[in-house]
Design a protein around this nucleic acid. Structure first.
Ligand SMILES: [Mn+2]
Ligand SMILES: [Mn+2]
Length: 302
DNA sequence: GGACGAG
DNA sequence: CTCGTCCAACGCACG
DNA sequence: CGTGCG
C-alpha cells in the first residue's frame, strides 16, 4: 500500500477511480493519481493560479457521478487555503485562491478535477490581467478550429500584442494576452468582441460569435464572453473532466498544426515538460497595455 | 467530500 | 458508530 | 421576464 500523503495533504480513498479506463487500456486515473499530477506540475502551474479567485469543478464520485461547480469556500476548508471576498450581484462571497502547492493538492483531495480561474487577481479584482479568446468548434473539423485560432493570433499580432497559445484539453484552443490590469472587464470584453466581429467579417463561413448553438452551424465559435466580470477560463495545466484526463497544455504557435486539443494528459504532460520548458514560462513578464492595440483596431474600422 | 441528525 | 440525507454557481446575451 | 450557454 503506497503512501497516500501528497505535499503534506492526506488523500482519502486514494484508490478511488475518478477517470475510468477510457479510452480502453489508457489506464484509469485515481484520486491519488490526480493529487500526484497536480503536485508534479505545481511549479509550472502555480504562476498562473496565484492570486486568482477560483471556481471549483468537483467530481466526488468520478466522471460518472454527480458533479458541481463550487464558488463559495466550504466551511470545512482549512485556514491555510487562501481566500478572497468578491462582489456578486447579491452579497459579497468568499472564494478560494490557490497560492501554493499544498492548496492545489488539497483541491484534488476535494475531487476538484478542474479549478476554473478568474481573469484577474486579488490585487485588482475589477481589472483583468488576462484577455482570453476561447475557440470552440461546432463539429469535429480540426482544420477549422486551427485556422480560426491562427486568425486570432495573426490579428492580435498585427495589433502589436504578444500572444500565448494552449490546448484546452477539450475541443479547442485558448489564445491569451497577458495584460497590465488597467481597464475594466467591460472595456476588455468589448475590445475582444470587436476583434471577434472583425474576424467574423473576414471569414463569415468559418467563424461566428452567435451565442445560440443552433445559429452557429458548423462554424467555430469565438467565445469572448470569458472576459466578463466573474467569468473564468481553464488555467494552464488544468485537468479536464473528460475521458483520458486530458490537460490544457501551453504550446508554441509552431505546434498548433501538429498538436490536437486533447494531445496531452495527466499521464503525458510530465514527459513533455521534461523534454522542453513551458512555452508560457515568461507570461508574467509580458503584461501589456491594450491602448495601442485598441487605437489600431479602431483605425481599421472597429 | 463532508456535516449532521436519526437510529 | 453507521447510515441516510443534504448541500455544493452565476453572469450575461438573446428571444 | 425566461432560457441557453460556458
Ligand atoms: Mn472552449
Ligand atoms: Mn460522497
Amino acid at each position: 500500500m503506497s503512501d497516500s500523503t501528497v505535499a503534506g495533504v492526506e488523500i482519502s480513498k486514494p484508490d478511488k477511480v475518478l477517470f475510468p479506463d477510457d479510452p480502453p487500456r489508457s489506464g484509469s486515473v485515481t484520486k491519488l493519481d490526480l493529487a500526484r499530477y497536480y503536485d508534479s506540475v505545481a511549479d509550472v502551474m502555480l504562476p498562473h493560479l496565484r492570486g486568482r479567485p477560483v471556481n471549483m469543478e468537483r467530481f466526488p464520485d468520478g466522471l460518472g457521478g454527480f458533479s458541481f461547480y463550487e464558488k463559495k469556500v466550504p466551511s470545512h476548508f482549512p485556514d491555510w487555503v487562501h481566500t478572497v471576498e468578491v462582489a456578486t450581484a447579491q452579497d459579497p462571497q468568499r472564494q478560494v485562491v490557490v497560492d501554493d502547492r499544498r492548496s492545489l493538492v488539497y483541491l484534488a483531495q476535494q475531487a476538484c478535477v478542474t479549478p476554473h480561474t478568474w481573469l484577474c487577481t486579488t490585487k485588482a479584482l475589477d481589472q483583468p490581467d488576462q484577455l482570453v479568446f476561447d475557440l470552440d468548434p461546432s463539429d469535429d473539423d480540426l482544420a477549422k478550429v486551427r485556422k480560426a485560432t491562427r486568425m486570432v493570433g495573426e490579428l492580435l499580432d498585427d495589433l502589436g500584442l504578444t500572444t500565448y497559445l494552449k490546448t484546452t484539453g477539450s475541443r479547442g484552443y485558448h489564445v491569451l494576452v497577458p495584460l497590465r490590469p488597467r481597464l475594466g472587464f467591460d472595456e476588455v470584453r468589448d475590445f475582444a468582441h470587436r476583434c471577434a466581429e472583425l474576424l467574423v467579417e473576414k471569414a463569415p463561413d468559418l467563424l461566428t460569435v452567435e451565442v445560440r448553438k443552433a445559429k452557429r452551424g458548423r462554424r467555430v465559435y469565438v467565445d469572448v464572453a470569458r472576459n466578463g466580470y466573474a467569468q473564468t477560463a481553464v488555467p494552464a495545466y488544468a485537468v479536464r473532466a473528460r475521458p483520458g484526463a486530458p490537460v490544457s497544455t501551453p504550446i508554441t504557435w509552431d505546434e498548433l498544426s501538429r498538436v490536437p486539443p486533447t494531445k496531452y494528459t495527466v499521464r503525458t504532460v510530465g514527459r513533455r515538460l521534461a523534454a522542453k520548458p513551458c512555452p508560457w514560462r515568461d507570461v508574467r513578464r509580458h503584461a501589456q497595455s491594450l491602448a495601442r492595440a485598441d487605437r489600431a483596431l479602431r483605425g481599421s474600422g472597429r
